[in-house]
Nucleic acid binder design. Structure first.
Length: 477
RNA sequence: CGGGGCGUGGCGCAGACUGGUAGCGCACCUGCUUUGGGAGCAGGGAGUCGGAGGUUCAAAUCCUCUCGCCCCGACCA
C-alpha cells in the first residue's frame, strides 16, 4: 500500500490503473477483461445508482428486469443491430450438458428481448407510453479492455421506452439526455457537452444517438452516456404496433438510453491528481474522515471521545463520515491513505485542538490546514461539502475550457491533436468520407455535433468545402 | 489478431546469462519505544518458483510444449 503512484504527466494510463487498484475501487479477476468491483468502488456505484434511479422515477419510469440470455435469432431481427454487435457477442451453446437447439446470446444490450415482450404488452394507444428501465449487467467481448472504461462485463442501466408518436419519442430522448447532463454536472461535478453523434458513431439500430461527452485530465474525450432515438426500427423488426384512437394500426416509436460503471472511470479521470482520487461530496462513500492524534492513553481516550461526539453530530446532520481509529497506523500514513481514496474533507483532531475547542480541517482540494470551532461543526461541514462540490466542478470546467480550441487550418489541426491538446471545434463538410479521412490521419473522431441552430458559415477544416456549423473533434477513449 | 512484458511467501521484485540447501522490500505476528504528513529497533511466521514433459548426480535457472494475466496497436459504451 505504501507504493507510490505513477505521475499523471509521466504515464496517464499507468497512473489510472494505479489509482483504481490502490484506492481499492476494483481489482483484476482471473478472467480476461473482467474486474471485481471492490466495496469502496461499489459503494460509489450504489450512490450513483440511488441518485439516477430517483431521477428516473421522477421522470415517470419504472424498473423491471429482463433475462440475461437472449435467443440468437432475436439479435438477427434488426439488421444494423446484429451487424454492430455480432463481433462482440458471448454465446452460450450448451445447457444442462446438452447442445442447445438455438444458441443463447449473453445480452450485450437488451433492445431485442425487451421489444419481443413489448409486442405482447402493447395493443392500444392507451398502453403508451411504456417507460421501463432496468439495472443489469451486460457482456461485450472486447478486444482490448481497461478497468471501468471497457470491460468484458459491466454494470449499467438501460431505459427502454415506447411511444405513440415520433415527437414523443424525440422528447423522451432529449429528456433523458438532460437527466444525464444534470447528473454528471451536479452530482459527479463532471462538466459535459451534449450533442448528437455522426452516423458513423451512432448506436447500431438507432435513428439518432445523442451523448454527453467529458474531457479527461489527459485531454482526451470520454463518452459518458448515450440516449438514442430508435425511431420505428425495433417496432418494425419485432412487429410492435398499436391501434390508434381513430382505429388505425401504427408502429410504435422507441428510445433507449444508458449509463454504465464507465462513469466511475470518468470520475476518476476528470478529478484525480498525482495523490490519487478526488471524490465529489455528493457521491463520495465517505465525505469526511476523522483522524485522531494522540500520544498517551489519556490523550487517546479524550481525543476519541471528542471524535465520537462530533462524529455522531455529523451523522445526525446526514453526512457520510468515518473515524479512522486504527491504532497501528500513524496519522501521516492515514492522511496519505485517505487522500489516495479521494475523501473530500479530513478532520484532524489532537490534543492541541481539544484544548482550543476546535478541529483542524484539511480539504482534498488545496490541502491547507484550517481550524474550525467544534460548536456547530456539522453545519459547517455540510457547507464545506457544498463549496467543495462547486469548486470541483469549476476546476474541471476551467480545465476543459483551457483546452478547447477553434481550429480552421488543417496543419494546425494535426499539430494540436497530436499531444493531444484537447477539444477542437472545427467546421466539417458533413460527409462520412471526410470524417473517416480525419480519423485515419489523426486518430481524432467527431465526438458530437452540437445541438441548436447557431449556424455560422465556414469552411471544412479538412476539405475546405462549405460548412454550416462547427463540430467537436477529439481523441477519445 | 499482431507487437511487447510478466508469472518466485499476501503484494512488489531479485535470483536465470554461468544449474549446486530460495532471497530482499512492503505487509503480517510478538515486544518495547513512538504518533500534528507515509515510524524505529529487536525477534518471528509464511513460497512443492503458473502447469506438463524432457536433459542432468542435481533444475526457479537449460530444452520443448502449454496455460494465464497485463501493456501498446487495429474494433468498441
Amino acid at each position: 500500500m505504501a507504493k507510490k503512484l505513477c505521475k499523471q504527466s509521466q504515464n496517464f494510463s499507468e497512473w489510472y490503473n494505479g489509482v483504481v487498484l490502490e484506492a481499492q475501487l476494483a481489482d483484476y479477476s482471473g478472467v480476461r477483461g473482467c474486474m471485481v468491483i471492490r466495496p469502496y468502488g461499489y459503494e460509489l456505484w450504489e450512490n450513483m445508482q440511488r441518485v439516477l434511479d430517483g431521477m428516473f422515477k421522477e421522470t415517470g419510469h419504472q424498473n423491471a428486469y429482463f433475462p440475461l440470455l437472449i435467443p440468437e435469432s432475436y439479435l438477427k431481427k434488426e439488421a444494423e443491430h446484429v451487424e454492430g454487435f455480432s463481433p462482440e457477442l458471448a454465446v452460450v451453446t450448451h445447457g444442462g450438458g446438452k447442445v442447445l437447439e438455438e444458441p443463447l446470446v449473453i445480452r450485450p444490450t437488451s433492445e431485442t428481448i425487451i421489444w419481443s415482450m413489448y409486442r405482447k404488452w402493447i395493443m392500444s394507444h392507451r398502453d403508451l407510453p411504456l417507460l421501463y428501465n432496468q439495472w443489469a449487467n451486460v457482456v461485450r467481448w472486447e478486444m482490448r479492455t481497461r478497468l471501468f472504461l471497457r470491460t468484458t462485463e459491466f454494470l449499467w442501466q438501460e431505459g427502454h421506452t415506447a411511444h405513440a408518436t415520433d415527437s414523443e419519442a424525440q422528447e423522451e430522448t432529449m429528456r433523458m439526455l438532460g437527466v444525464y447532463k444534470t447528473f454528471a454536472e451536479e452530482y459527479m461535478a463532471v462538466p459535459v457537452l451534449v450533442g448528437v453523434k455522426s452516423d458513423a458513431q451512432k448506436f447500431a439500430g438507432a435513428v439518432r444517438t445523442y451523448c454527453i461527452e467529458a474531457m479527461m485530465r489527459d485531454r482526451k474525450a470520454l463518452q459518458a452516456g448515450t440516449s438514442h432515438n430508435l425511431g420505428q426500427n425495433f417496432a418494425k423488426a419485432f412487429d410492435v404496433t398499436y391501434q390508434d384512437a381513430d382505429g388505425s394500426r401504427q408502429f410504435v416509436w422507441a428510445t433507449s438510453w444508458g449509463v454504465s460503471t464507465r462513469l466511475i472511470g470518468a470520475l476518476v479521470m476528470t478529478h484525480g491528481d498525482d495523490r490519487g482520487l478526488i471524490m465529489p461530496p455528493k457521491l463520495a462513500p465517505i465525505q469526511v474522515v476523522f483522524v485522531p492524534i494522540y500520544r498517551s492513553d489519556d490523550e487517546k481516550s479524550a481525543v476519541l471521545a471528542q471524535c465520537q461526539k462530533l462524529l455522531g453530530e455529523a451523522k445526525a446532520a446526514g453526512l457520510r463520515v468515518h473515524l479512522d481509529d486504527r491504532d497501528q497506523m500513524r496519522p501521516g500514513w492515514k492522511f496519505a491513505q485517505w487522500e489516495l481514496k479521494g475523501v473530500p474533507l479530513r478532520i484532524e483532531l489532537g490534543p492541541r485542538d481539544l484544548q482550543k475547542q476546535q478541529v483542524t480541517l484539511v480539504s482534498r482540494l488545496g490541502g491547507q490546514k484550517t481550524p474550525l470551532p467544534t460548536d456547530g461543526l456539522a453545519q459547517l461541514l455540510l457547507q464545506k461539502c457544498d463549496e467543495f462540490q462547486d469548486a470541483l466542478f469549476q476546476r474541471a470546467l476551467e480545465f476543459r475550457e483551457e483546452h478547447t480550441y477553434e481550429v480552421d487550418d488543417w496543419a494546425d489541426f494535426k499539430e494540436r491533436i497530436r499531444q493531444p491538446e484537447g477539444f477542437l471545434n472545427c467546421h466539417w463538410d458533413g460527409t462520412a468520407e471526410t470524417e473517416a479521412a480525419i480519423q485515419e490521419q489523426t486518430k481524432a473522431t467527431i465526438r458530437l455535433i452540437p445541438l441548436g441552430d447557431d449556424a455560422r458559415e465556414g469552411r471544412c477544416v479538412y476539405s475546405g468545402k462549405p460548412s454550416s456549423k462547427r463540430v467537436l473533434f477529439a481523441k477519445a477513449y
